Amino acid sequence: MNLSSSFSQAGSLVRVNAFIRSVYNWMAIGLGLTALTAFYVATTPALLQFIFGNQLVLFGMIIGELGMVFYLSARVQKMSASTATALFVFYSILNGATLASIFIIYTASSIASTFIACALTFGACSIYGMVTKRDLTSMGGFLMMGLMGIIIASLVNMFFRSPGVSMVISYVGVLVFVGLTAYDTQKLKQMALTQPADASGAMVRKGAIMGALSLYLDFINLFIMLLHIFGVSRD
Rank of each mutant, 00 (worst) to 15 (best):
L33E: 09
K133V: 01
Y171S: 01
L31W: 07
S6Q: 13
N2T: 02
G164I: 04
L143D: 06
L47K: 05
G32H: 13
S126W: 01
M148P: 00
G129V: 02
M61S: 04
V57A: 10
S126Y: 05
A10N: 10
S82F: 12
S110N: 10
L58T: 01
G123M: 05
P45L: 09
I152W: 06
G67D: 04
T98C: 05
I102R: 05
I169A: 03
S80H: 04
Q186M: 02
Y24W: 06
S8I: 07
A124P: 07
M61A: 15
N95W: 10
T43F: 01
T181H: 07
I229V: 15
A124E: 03
F142Q: 08
I105G: 00
L56C: 06
F50A: 14
L155Q: 15
C118W: 00
A35V: 14
A124K: 07
M144C: 02
A38Q: 02
Q49M: 12
S113V: 15
T37Y: 11
L215C: 12
P163E: 08
A86L: 14
S80F: 02
N221D: 09
N221W: 05
L215Y: 07
L120P: 03
A18C: 00
R134N: 03
R15C: 01
L36R: 10
S80C: 07
M79F: 08
Y40F: 12
L175H: 09
T121V: 08
G149N: 11
F160E: 13
F39K: 13
I51M: 06
F59A: 03
I29N: 03
C118E: 12
A199G: 08
A35S: 10
T98G: 03
A199C: 05
F52P: 06
F39A: 15
R21I: 08
G129I: 07
T181P: 13
F88E: 11
G207A: 08
V14G: 01
F159D: 12
G140N: 08
M1P: 02
Q195E: 15
L213S: 11
A117T: 14
L56Q: 13
T121W: 06
A97C: 00
S6T: 10
Y24G: 10
T34K: 01
N95S: 13
K187I: 03
S5K: 11
L47I: 11
M148C: 14
V232N: 11
A199W: 09
I150C: 11
Q186I: 08
L3F: 05
T132H: 12
M191S: 11
V89W: 07
T98L: 00
G123F: 07
L147G: 08
N2C: 00
R21H: 14
S200K: 07
I209F: 07
Y183T: 00
T83C: 00
I20S: 05
A119G: 04
A117P: 06
